[in-house]
Amino acid sequence: KAVLCADHGEKLQLFCQEDGKVICWLCERSQEHRGHHTFLVE
Protein backbone atom coordinates (compact mmCIF):
# COMPACT_ATOMS: atom_id res chain seq x y z
CA LYS A 1 0.00 0.00 0.00
CA ALA A 2 1.42 3.34 -1.05
CA VAL A 3 1.87 6.17 1.42
CA LEU A 4 0.31 9.38 0.11
CA CYS A 5 1.44 12.97 0.40
CA ALA A 6 -0.59 14.91 2.99
CA ASP A 7 -0.45 18.03 0.78
CA HIS A 8 -1.16 16.58 -2.67
CA GLY A 9 -2.55 13.04 -2.24
CA GLU A 10 0.16 11.67 -4.56
CA LYS A 11 2.44 8.71 -3.85
CA LEU A 12 5.53 9.54 -1.77
CA GLN A 13 8.25 8.16 -4.02
CA LEU A 14 11.08 10.72 -3.98
CA PHE A 15 13.59 11.28 -1.18
CA CYS A 16 14.74 14.89 -0.81
CA GLN A 17 18.39 14.85 0.31
CA GLU A 18 18.34 18.44 1.59
CA ASP A 19 15.25 17.99 3.76
CA GLY A 20 15.81 14.35 4.68
CA LYS A 21 12.26 13.31 3.91
CA VAL A 22 10.17 11.52 1.31
CA ILE A 23 8.09 13.75 -0.97
CA CYS A 24 5.80 13.39 -4.01
CA TRP A 25 6.48 14.62 -7.55
CA LEU A 26 4.32 17.71 -6.97
CA CYS A 27 6.33 18.60 -3.86
CA GLU A 28 9.53 18.23 -5.90
CA ARG A 29 8.26 20.82 -8.38
CA SER A 30 7.13 23.23 -5.65
CA GLN A 31 9.13 26.29 -4.60
CA GLU A 32 10.03 24.58 -1.30
CA HIS A 33 12.11 21.83 -2.95
CA ARG A 34 13.22 23.57 -6.16
CA GLY A 35 16.87 22.83 -6.90
CA HIS A 36 17.09 20.09 -4.26
CA HIS A 37 18.62 16.69 -4.98
CA THR A 38 15.97 13.96 -5.02
CA PHE A 39 16.20 10.20 -5.46
CA LEU A 40 13.50 7.73 -6.49
CA VAL A 41 12.62 5.30 -3.70
CA GLU A 42 10.66 2.07 -4.07
Rank of each mutant, 00 (worst) to 15 (best):
Q13V: 08
L4T: 10
A6E: 06
L26K: 14
Q13E: 14
A2C: 07
C27P: 02
E28H: 03
H33T: 01
H8C: 02
C24A: 00
K11G: 11
K21S: 09
L12F: 09
Q13S: 13
V3W: 04
R34A: 12
E28D: 09
C24T: 01
A2R: 13
R34P: 04
Q17Y: 03
C5K: 01
G9E: 07
G35A: 08
D19A: 01
L14E: 07
I23A: 03
A6L: 06
F39R: 15
F15V: 10
L40R: 11
R34Q: 10
S30P: 01
C5H: 01
K21C: 03
V22T: 06
L12C: 13
R29V: 05
F15T: 05
C24W: 00
L14M: 13
A2P: 10
I23S: 02
S30W: 01
C24K: 02
A6G: 07
C16W: 01
E10R: 11
L26P: 07
R34S: 11
A6N: 05
R34H: 13
H37C: 07
Q31K: 09
H33V: 02
G9P: 03
V41L: 11
W25D: 13
G9C: 06
R34L: 13
E28Q: 08
L40C: 07
K21D: 05
I23Q: 00
D19Q: 01
V22W: 02
L12D: 11
V3D: 05
I23L: 04
S30Q: 12
S30H: 06
F39Q: 14
H37W: 02
H36L: 02
H33C: 06
L12E: 09
L12W: 09
L26I: 07
V41A: 14
Q13D: 09
C27I: 00
T38G: 07
D7A: 13
F15D: 04
R34E: 10
S30M: 12
K1S: 08
H8N: 00
F15E: 08
H8F: 00
A6T: 06
E10G: 07
E18V: 06
L12G: 14
K11V: 10
C24P: 02
V41G: 09
Q17I: 15
C16S: 05
C27E: 00
E28M: 04
K1M: 08
C27N: 02
A2T: 14
T38E: 05
H33S: 05
